[in-house]
Amino acid sequence: MYKIVRKKELNPTVTLMEIDAPLVAKKAEPGQFIILRVNEDGERIPLTVADYDREKGTVTIIFQIVGATTELLNHKNEGEYIQDFVGPLGKATETEGLKKVAVVGGGVGCAIAYPVAKKLHDNGCEVHSIVGFRNKDLVILEDEFNAASNVLKIMTDDGSYGTKGLVTDALKALIDEGNQYDEVIAIGPVIMMKFVCKLTKEYGIKTMVSMNPIMIDGTGMCGGCRLTVGGETKFACVDGPDFDGHLVDFDEALERGSMYREFEQAKREEVCNLFKGVK
């Protein structure tokens, strides 16, 4: 069992939890993920590491409430426990040797983009962060990104905060202003990563993306997380989750990600109704 030592609602649909998991905290690096089960008989879900404290032995996760498991997790409170927490899994994001990078985050993907930006910044890299949200209420980690970035652009779909527009608009503007990036790192919804890659390909800028497909074990055993990269089948859990975005078949990834959508929605409603009964 793993204790929830801190819980914070970042916006109505996104929650931060700091979990007591010393073994994971000792090894975790930006870009890696963990797998958790909320309770016995629960589903295994992967979540990317948002932060870690090696001294305290804690790992921070930030999740959006999208299905039954995240709904259940969100009902757990500080001081309570979750059943399983295993990691760190996958390869860490490569930050070595990068001098100037644009980090692009979308929605809850910003939770994963942030530790990458922070690590780059700590290494002395010039970091331009572009973070996008649907509206003002959904903006997360603004102060954190501010502290870890030389330039921060906040974009909202409706213009209720920052600049109205898409992250690709801001990225294009920065590139057109003459910024020469060693690399662009894009983390967010698959569709966002797809369009970031389309843009950077035109400019010939290497772009890494963090894929988050459906998976079970996270150690290469099930193959459920497979995706096509450069015409080859790769497993996101052991070969990734970071891949060269110009080689990823995003359309296939989008389709595969929707496999259980109906089940997930029905299941989430079930859980919501359950809690309505209790409260």
């Binding site: 074990d217 055993m221 459920g224 089948t233």
Partner: peptide, 26 residues
């Protein structure tokens, strides 16, 4: 020996194609 093999034929990444490991694990 936990890593599943695939045949590398067209359509293997369609929805509804499982490795036996994934199917049985689920």
């Amino acid at each position: 020996a936990g890593l599943p093999r695939f045949m590398n034929i067209p359509g293997e990444n369609l929805k509804g194609v499982y490795s036996a490991n994934e199917f049985l694990t689920r």
